[in-house]
Each structure stands twice: as structure tokens, then as C-alpha cells.
Amino acid sequence: MKKLYFFDFDGTLTYKDTMFLYLKFYNSAKFNFQFLKHIPLFILLKLKLASAEKVKKSFISSILKGQSKTKIEEKSQQFFEKYYPEIIRENAIEFIQNIDREHTESYLVTASLDIWVKPFAEKFKMNLLATRAEFKNDIFTGNFVGNNCNGGEKVHRIKEALQGKKFDKTIAFGDTSGDKEMLEWANESHFEFFH
């Protein structure tokens, strides 16, 4: 029986959201300054008066825009080495280690940026579907390639990745409303399974 697993990352496999953690790790002085500057936007977001994608892009861009791909990749590796396995839920690690790789394909499907999630996906031996950072001449533009990988976009990206592949069962794991469409799309879904 051929199975397909889809795991959301932040909150589902981790104890905390990795975006703030990574950006602070990348440059804490800049992070603190930009965080204060972005408070009005965060408030609008909480009141559902601003788009999550726009606020996220603005905040990430304020810290990482203009940085080289090499430096970002180095920092992402250091971030992984510092926080793995500490931020990953223990039972999630155990579950992932026991996946029957011969009859299963696994995907990490996350709204977080590919740049800092990639080392985790590699460690988990999973394919990565994430929000993609845009680089021009190896410099981060502050923009995303395509849409934020959240909500309906998760299903869109999954379908894109699976073109022509057949599986007997699809199983999804999530923990927020951003995973709703993915959980509904899968044959079997688990909400807050590792909590």
C-alpha cells in the first residue's frame, strides 16, 4: 500500500513559530527595531484588517532584503544546528523516524520560507513545499516567488508536485486554519496530532 504524508511545519511539528525565531537569530538588533516598527501592522493583522501575506513579506523583507543567498543559507544551517531537535515535538520526531520509507512519500508543506525550513526537511528526508524566497543574482529581493504557501495554496502546490503520481492513501497533519484545505483534501487528516 502506497501512502503519502503531508506535514505542516510550524506548530504541528514544532513547539513554536519559526519565522520570528529565525529572523531574530539572523540579526537580533535589526529584528528588535523592525518588530517595533511593524507593531501597527501586527495589530491590523490581529484585527483582520491587513493581509497576512503582505505583513509577512514586509517584515521578512525588512530584515533579509539585500542579503546574499550564501549568507542566508549559512545562517539557516546554523539556525537548524542550534534549534534541532529542541524546537521539534518529541513524538513528531519519533513518528517521522518510524515512517516506512519504502512505501511512503512525505512532504513538509509550510507557509514558512524555504530558506530556513530546508535543513529541517532534509533532516526529515522529506520533500519541501514552502513559500519561496526570490533571489536575483543571488541576492534576496524581499519578494516571494508565487503565493504564500498557506490555505488553498497548500493544496494547489501539492497537486502540482504530485502530477501523475498515484497513491492508495493520503494523510495530512496540521494545527491551524491555514491547514484546513489540506486536511479536507487528504483521505485521512489529523489535527494537533503531536500536541
Rank of each mutant, 00 (worst) to 15 (best):
M1H: 10
K2G: 07
K2V: 05
L4Y: 08
Y5C: 07
F6Y: 12
F6R: 04
F6G: 01
F9Q: 04
F9D: 02
D10Q: 09
G11N: 07
G11E: 06
T12P: 00
D17F: 02
F20S: 06
F20T: 03
L21S: 04
L21I: 04
L23E: 08
L23I: 07
L23G: 03
F25K: 01
Y26K: 05
N27H: 08
A29H: 11
N32S: 13
Q34F: 05
F35N: 03
L36H: 05
K37W: 14
I39H: 06
I39A: 03
P40H: 09
P40C: 14
F42L: 13
I43V: 15
L44G: 05
L44R: 13
L44P: 01
L45C: 07
K48V: 11
S51K: 15
K54A: 04
K54L: 02
K56G: 00
S58E: 06
S61F: 00
S62A: 12
I63L: 04
I63Y: 01
G66M: 08
G66F: 10
G66Y: 06
Q67F: 02
Q67K: 06
K69G: 00
T70H: 12
I72S: 01
E73F: 12
E74F: 10
E74K: 13
K75C: 04
Q78E: 15
F79N: 00
E81I: 07
K82R: 15
Y83E: 08
P85V: 03
E86H: 10
I87T: 06
I88C: 07
R89F: 00
R89C: 04
E94W: 03
F95I: 08
I96V: 12
D100M: 07
R101Y: 04
E102Q: 10
H103K: 14
E105I: 10
S106V: 05
Y107F: 15
L108I: 09
A111K: 01
S112T: 10
L113I: 04
L113A: 08
I115G: 00
I115V: 08
W116K: 00
W116G: 00
V117F: 00
V117D: 00
K118F: 10
P119T: 05
F120V: 05
A121P: 01
A121R: 01
E122Q: 11
K123R: 14
K123P: 02
M126E: 06
L128K: 01
L129M: 09
A130T: 07
T131V: 09
R132M: 06
A133I: 03
E134K: 12
F135D: 09
K136H: 11
D138T: 09
I139M: 03
F140S: 02
T141P: 02
G142N: 02
N143P: 00
N147M: 03
N150I: 05
G151Q: 02
G151V: 05
E153N: 09
K154W: 10
V155T: 11
H156T: 14
R157I: 07
K159G: 11
E160T: 07
K166N: 12
K166L: 14
T170P: 10
T170C: 13
T170I: 13
A172R: 03
A172M: 10
G174A: 14
S177A: 15
S177Q: 15
K180F: 13
M182V: 09
W185H: 14
A186G: 13
N187R: 08
N187L: 12
N187V: 07
N187I: 13
E188A: 15
E188W: 13
H190Y: 15
F191Y: 15
F191R: 12
F191C: 13
E192T: 13
E192Y: 14
F193D: 03
H195G: 15
H195P: 04
